[in-house]
């Protein structure tokens, strides 16, 4: 079955069995391995990608279900060589240890900031509640998202003053 989608802004297509999961299509057919698999019950969120801007668990969708959609994976987050604010936040706040949950967590964080520019602790915890991190205990992930929110706000602000205050960056 033919399937095509825009992944991180580039047109991608494949000829696959209808039963192929989106995560397998991304990892195997497209060779983009930043999207991970941590369970088989839709419980962990390691496989999170954005489809038309919404976070989804790519282990729970068939690739053919997103035919014609816009997909964003971790590989599409950085702006060229420069890290995106969410990536800077995770680095500066030690929001990752083994890094296995991190792509999913960062996609959720970025999407959250796009809706809620200054999310509270509780809003962040709720947003990532479908994603498991076995290493960090979540506190630093919350801080990482808040750090990214500040950077994002500063980048949008007219003066460059706040960006310098928020720290980090390339």
């Amino acid at each position: 079955m033919k399937v095509s989608m825009r992944v991180n802004g580039a047109e991608k297509s494949g000829d696959i069995e209808p039963r192929v999961l989106l995560v397998d299509f991304i990892r195997t057919n497209l060779g983009m391995t930043g999207t991970h698999v941590g369970c088989d019950t839709s419980s962990c969120g390691a496989c999170t990608v954005l489809v038309n801007g919404d976070p989804v668990k790519s282990c729970t969708l068939l690739a053919v279900q997103v035919d014609g959609s816009e997909v964003k994976t971790i590989e599409g987050i950085a702006q060229g060589a420069a890290l995106a604010p969410i990536q800077v936040g995770f680095h500066e706040e030690h929001g990752l240890q083994c890094g296995f949950c991190t792509p999913g967590m960062m996609l959720i964080g970025e999407e959250l900031i796009s809706r809620i520019p200054n999310p509270t602790d509780e809003q962040i915890r709720w947003a990532i509640s479908g994603n498991i991190c076995r290493c960090t205990g979540y506190m630093n992930i919350v801080k990482a998202v808040q750090h990214a929110a500040k950077l994002t706000a500063a980048a949008k602000a007219p003066a460059g003053k706040e960006a310098a205050m928020a720290g980090g960056g390339e």
């Binding site: 983009m32 391995t33 995770f90 890094g99 991190t102």
Partner: peptide, 21 residues
Amino acid sequence: IKRKEDARFLRGQGHFLDDFV
């Protein structure tokens, strides 16, 4: 100091076992 290993994980470029072909 911030972690050196973060660079690859932040970009989804870690090399986990299942990533090898």
